[in-house]
């Protein structure tokens, strides 16, 4: 499903230094997770409050030199999963909203509200996650995760993955080009042998890519040894928590608590 190009990872927005962008990566990660947690804790059907949180998100984005339009445009990639929620429309019993022609299935009011709630909250959450990655360089994000006590090995491994993502994807695309060059009709959707044959060719490509990857990891390991590596990837401190970090997290936490209480008890 990953079709994002490498330029997506290095959007010029990451150069922004105003608003949220100037915070420590640890604060940004916590704020994004807290925002999504708050949304998840809200009861279904509170569309006014969802809207309020969306506005908060858009204001934060704008203050950080990130256009909300960009968030919306990128959030589309998360929509397909909404299909998984479609059944809510039919399975929740309640007052009938409308009856589908031909099939004769009822859509209940309650079902429609539940469906809309899940999809809306999911959509807003995705935009919060997008804002996080736009306002944080990947290397800083990794550093922040380690600062939040993610195991160092996991973060180091992820650092390598990020580094070699595009290297291996371009190797994969060279293999794809070679496949296309040898089977002219494949891109038209049909041809290129039977389904079984096509699966096998894909498997061979995957297999040879895997061999190359393992050999590359050996060479990288040697390159690391040659520069004094002894089993631990060390990095320098990049950031320190400043008062603005503490303030923003405090304000966010209080707002979240109030919103959740209001939504449940008013």
């Amino acid at each position: 499903m990953i079709e994002a190009t490498n330029t997506d990872l290095n959007s010029p927005k990451t150069e922004s230094q105003s608003g949220l962008a100037s915070l420590d990566p640890r604060s940004k990660i916590l704020l994004a997770c807290g925002f999504i947690l708050t949304l998840s804790l809200l009861p279904p059907g509170e569309f006014l409050i969802y809207g309020l949180l969306l506005i908060v998100l858009y204001i934060s984005a704008s203050l950080s030199d990130c256009s909300p339009v960009y968030l919306v445009r990128r959030s589309v990639i998360a929509l397909p999963f909404a299909f998984a929620a479609v059944t809510l429309l039919f399975t929740i019993p309640g007052e009938s909203l409308l009856t589908l022609p031909i099939l004769g299935i009822d859509i209940s009011v309650e079902g429609a509200i539940r469906f809309a709630s899940i999809v809306t909250r999911s959509w807003i959450s995705v935009q919060a996650a997008i804002l996080l990655i736009i306002l944080t360089k990947v290397a800083d994000l990794m550093w922040g995760l380690q600062g939040l006590h993610t195991p160092a090995i996991l973060v180091s491994v992820a650092g390598f993955t990020y580094r070699y993502l595009d290297v291996l994807r371009s190797e994969a695309s060279r293999l794809r080009t070679a496949r296309q060059a040898r089977s002219a009709t494949l891109s038209a959707g049909r041809g290129g042998g039977t389904l079984l044959w096509r699966a096998r060719v894909t498997g061979w490509m995957v297999g040879s890519l895997m061999i190359r990857s393992m050999e590359r990891s050996e060479r990288i390991y040697n390159a690391m040894l040659a520069r004094g590596y002894t089993g631990e990837v060390k990095t320098l401190t990049r950031f320190e928590l400043r008062s603005r970090d503490y303030w923003s997290m405090l304000v966010a936490a209080l707002t979240a608590v109030i919103i959740i209480l209001v939504a449940h008890f008013l």
């Binding site: 390598f160 040697n222 390159a223 590596y229 060390k234």
Partner: peptide
């Protein structure tokens, strides 16, 4: 520390997320 070995494929030599991290890798270690 005495021998600086530069590998043929720079994609093997440069294994860190940023240029800074890569050039700093040796001195840090």
């Amino acid at each position: 520390a005495a021998v600086g070995l530069v590998f043929q494929d720079p994609d093997d030599q440069l294994f860190s997320p940023t240029v800074f991290d890569d050039v700093a890798f040796g001195p840090i270690h």
